[in-house]
Simulated assay, not measured.
Amino acid sequence: MDIPTYWKNFKQQHSEVTTDDYEAFSLGNPNDIAQQDSLAHLISDGIKTATTSAYDLYAQDESDPLPKVGEYGIILDGHQQPLCITKTVVVEIVPFLQVSAEHAYHEGEGPRTLDYWRKEHWKFFKNEYKEEHHEFNEELPCVCEVYKLVYK
Score class of each variant (00 low, 15 high):
residue 142 C to F: 00
residue 43 I to T: 08
residue 107 E to P: 10
residue 49 T to H: 02
residue 144 C to Y: 00
residue 152 K to L: 12
residue 18 T to A: 06
residue 24 A to Q: 12
residue 112 R to P: 02
residue 93 I to A: 05
residue 7 W to K: 13
residue 82 P to M: 07
residue 76 L to S: 12
residue 113 T to H: 00
residue 74 I to P: 05
residue 93 I to T: 15
residue 51 T to M: 13
residue 39 L to Y: 03
residue 137 N to P: 10
residue 92 E to L: 04
residue 34 A to E: 10
residue 12 Q to H: 13
residue 4 P to M: 05
residue 25 F to Q: 04
residue 94 V to C: 06
residue 117 W to H: 04
residue 140 L to Y: 04
residue 4 P to F: 02
residue 112 R to E: 15
residue 5 T to R: 09
residue 23 E to R: 13
residue 147 Y to M: 04
residue 96 F to H: 03
residue 37 D to Y: 00
residue 41 H to V: 01
residue 16 E to P: 01
residue 146 V to L: 03
residue 47 I to R: 13
residue 48 K to Y: 07
residue 142 C to L: 09
residue 94 V to A: 09
residue 81 Q to I: 09
residue 151 Y to G: 13
residue 128 E to T: 03
residue 111 P to A: 04
residue 69 V to G: 08
residue 48 K to E: 04
residue 48 K to V: 03
residue 45 D to Y: 08
residue 84 C to G: 07
residue 110 G to Q: 03
residue 77 D to N: 15
residue 87 K to R: 15
residue 37 D to T: 00
residue 58 Y to D: 02
residue 98 Q to K: 14
residue 89 V to D: 06
residue 17 V to E: 13
residue 150 V to A: 01
residue 84 C to I: 00
residue 21 D to W: 11
residue 115 D to W: 00
residue 115 D to Q: 10
residue 52 T to S: 15
residue 114 L to I: 13
residue 52 T to Q: 03
residue 140 L to C: 07
residue 74 I to Y: 03
residue 50 A to I: 04
residue 74 I to S: 01
residue 116 Y to N: 05
residue 87 K to Q: 15
residue 126 K to I: 02
residue 129 Y to N: 08
residue 30 P to T: 12
residue 140 L to A: 08
residue 47 I to M: 10
residue 132 E to H: 09
residue 55 Y to C: 11
residue 18 T to D: 11
residue 152 K to H: 15
residue 24 A to Y: 10
residue 130 K to L: 13
residue 110 G to V: 05
residue 77 D to H: 11
residue 82 P to V: 10
residue 84 C to N: 08
residue 128 E to V: 03
residue 123 K to L: 13
residue 150 V to N: 00
residue 67 P to Y: 00
residue 112 R to N: 10
residue 19 T to D: 06
residue 114 L to Y: 01
residue 138 E to N: 01
residue 46 G to Q: 07
residue 89 V to E: 08
residue 122 W to P: 00
residue 145 E to Y: 03
residue 101 A to W: 06
residue 31 N to R: 08
residue 11 K to N: 12
residue 55 Y to N: 10
residue 7 W to N: 14
residue 7 W to A: 14
residue 149 L to N: 04
residue 26 S to K: 00
residue 72 Y to E: 06
residue 53 S to C: 06
residue 47 I to E: 14
residue 16 E to Q: 12
residue 33 I to H: 03
residue 55 Y to V: 06
residue 18 T to F: 08
residue 73 G to M: 09
residue 28 G to I: 10
residue 17 V to R: 01
residue 152 K to Y: 11
residue 73 G to P: 05
residue 36 Q to K: 15
residue 3 I to Y: 04
residue 78 G to F: 07
residue 40 A to G: 00
residue 43 I to M: 14
residue 56 D to A: 11
residue 78 G to V: 03
residue 43 I to K: 06
